[in-house]
């Protein structure tokens, strides 16, 4: 009700007056980031060194990938708690497949292909499970992905016996971690490419637009004749496939399959998306919000690490930031509508 009054009021004040305010709201996060970087730099010059900036960019690219994956499902009012365990499972599966293929004497390219195939299949399988349970059985996304969270953890630790899986070929790490495109490290290049494609999909394709419609008003989407179930299943598969891609790149970085690689990633990715301005109520957000949120979290934790803020204090700060971020978003929503 109050939303309606506000929207009427907003129309009366006129569009021109709102524009600066709107610009200011969308600039809050970038401004906060600049302030943060300058603040940290005043404590430690190392923050601005090119080595550290490259490091931040690389770290951001992993988290941004996961935040993008999370954003895709959040747009439809969903959520993927299983993202972290999926990452662990894919990491272990990829490493085992490659170690197995290498041990049986296949040539290097076949070994790599085996690893990628197994990794992506595991990711897609997890996404398919989530999507089917959520779309066909109408199970709440939180509960459904909490279920697959447990299953994926079980699979990851059982396959690996809880230990890192060795035997990842060096070629794999050389390509997906050490490699570079036009001098840009592989992780950053992949994330930028995925980001551009995903942005085009979300903004320009029928599939992408229908995610926003489903998130804004699921009933209207169904009444309008959208194949909601099929779209939802595709969404969760896309989310898990992106998570699998991130998992493969992280596995290349560590050089082994890690059953604990996913750890707190589910919640970190959600936090990244939400801080960037993706709405958990669905229908609002995109590649930009995911990348922005991921960048903010990475800058914050990188700066706190360099200025030697206690790890436990960092947890408290991150928690507070998540709440403040959503509060600001709430305020912004009320002003705009």
């Amino acid at each position: 009700m109050s939303d309606l009054e506000l929207s009427v009021a907003a129309q009366e004040t006129g569009r021109e007056k709102l524009l600066p305010a709107r610009w200011l709201w969308s600039a809050i996060l970038p401004i906060a980031m600049v302030v943060l970087v300058l603040g940290f730099a005043s404590f430690d010059r190392g923050v601005l060194s090119s080595a550290n900036l490259l490091n931040v960019a690389q770290q951001t690219s992993y988290l941004a990938l996961f935040a993008m994956a999370q954003t895709v499902v959040i747009l439809t009012r969903g959520l993927d708690l299983a993202l972290g365990p999926t990452v662990s499972m894919v990491s272990v599966g990829t490493a085992l497949a490659m170690a197995g293929a290498a041990a049986t004497g296949h040539d290097p390219s076949a070994v790599l292909l085996a690893g990628l195939a197994v990794g992506f299949s595991l990711g897609v399988a997890c996404g398919l499970f989530n999507g089917v349970v959520i779309a066909m059985f109408k199970v709440n996304p939180f509960v459904a992905t909490l279920g697959s969270y447990n299953v994926a953890i079980g699979v990851a630790t059982t396959l690996s016996s809880g230990r890192p899986v060795q035997g990842v070929p060096t070629l794999f790490s050389q390509i997906f971690y050490g490699g570079s495109v036009f001098g840009i490290p592989a992780a950053i290049a992949v994330t930028v490419a995925v980001g551009i494609v995903l942005h085009l999909v979300l903004a320009r394709t029928v599939f992408g637009r229908s995610l926003y419609i489903i998130g804004t008003n699921p009933r209207a989407a169904a009444v309008a004749g959208l194949p909601v179930k099929r779209i939802l299943i595709t969404t969760y598969v896309l989310c898990s496939a992106l998570a699998a891609l991130g998992a493969i790149m992280m596995t290349a970085r560590t050089g082994s399959g890690e059953p604990n690689l996913g750890g707190a990633l589910s919640l970190q990715a959600i936090a990244g998306a939400v801080i960037g301005g993706t709405s958990l109520a669905g229908g609002r957000g995109g590649v930009g919000t995911a990348v922005l949120g991921a960048l903010f979290i990475t800058i914050l934790s990188n700066g706190m690490n360099l200025t030697r803020v206690d790890g436990y204090v960092q947890m408290v700060v991150l928690g507070a930031i998540v709440i403040i971020g959503v509060l600001l978003d709430r305020l912004r929503l009320e002003r705009r509508l």
């Binding site: 959600i270 991150l318 928690g319 709440i323 959503v326």
Partner: peptide, 8 residues
């Protein structure tokens, strides 16, 4: 989100 924040 709130309880995610207070959890951390």
């Amino acid at each position: 989100v709130v309880t995610l924040g207070t959890m951390s």
